[in-house]
Design a protein around this nucleic acid. Structure first.
Length: 197
DNA sequence: CTTCAGATGCTCT
DNA sequence: GAGCATCTGAAGA
């Protein structure tokens, strides 16, 4: 499998958000273990026109600085005081835009995910826990040990990158989650997800 | 299955 | 000081 290059990310954010579905997120943990997770849910944020984007109107602060980094950079921030969200910077450099990774499926070395989320082995999970391992941005970052320390990492690897993968047969589209404050942008249909694998 | 409250700390005004 | 791109456990239907 080939690693997606910066060229993949340096395109229209909505297109990248849709094409990321089915691609495989690869996280190399500090101990060297590689965990792989096919991406199942994404959202687009485009500073140029999107009041929900942290860098709306090209607002440049300490936090949004990463959104102005080259396409193919990881933007990770703390939300609600205790969870992290993983994004990939998109568009041409200087355009603050990104794709939020909201959900994924369990792939290679999935045992690590059960350990990080619930502190037990995969076969000890309840059916409910099994279905809710990676279906949210905070859960994903917890499972893959991603924090603000990993903010700004290039997606060219080795700590964090995306491999090519099969496009899903069906892509669902809808409103984004948790941005009711964003006025008209709250209704933009910029959330994309696949059927459960 | 559903709703609901609480946790918790960084960021910007 | 206010607000936030969320999650969990408890309680009710």
């Amino acid at each position: 499998m080939s690693i997606l290059s910066p060229d993949f990310y340096a395109r229209d954010t909505l297109l990248v958000a849709k094409e990321l579905l089915g691609k495989v997120l690869v996280r190399t943990l500090p101990d060297g273990t590689q965990v792989k997770c096919p991406i199942t849910e994404t959202e687009a944020y485009i500073g140029r026109m999107d009041k929900a984007c942290h860098a709306y109107g090209y607002k440049r602060t300490a936090r949004t600085e990463t959104l102005f980094a080259p396409p193919g950079t990881a933007y990770i921030y703390l939300i609600y005081g205790m969870y992290h969200c993983l994004n990939f910077v998109t568009e041409a450099q200087g355009e603050p835009a990104a794709v939020l990774i909201r959900g994924a499926a369990r792939g290679e070395n999935g045992d690590i995910i059960a350990k990080n989320r619930f502190g037990c082995n995969t076969d000890q999970l309840t059916a409910y826990q099994r279905k809710n391992l990676l279906n949210g941005p905070g859960k994903l970052c917890r499972a893959l040990q991603l924090t603000r320390q990993e903010n700004g990492l290039p997606l060219s690897g080795p700590e964090l990158y995306v491999e090519d993968g099969p496009a899903p047969a069906v892509i669902h589209t809808g409103k984004r989650i948790g941005i009711d404050y964003a006025e008209e942008a709250a209704d933009f249909p910029w959330r994309f997800w696949t059927d459960p694998l």
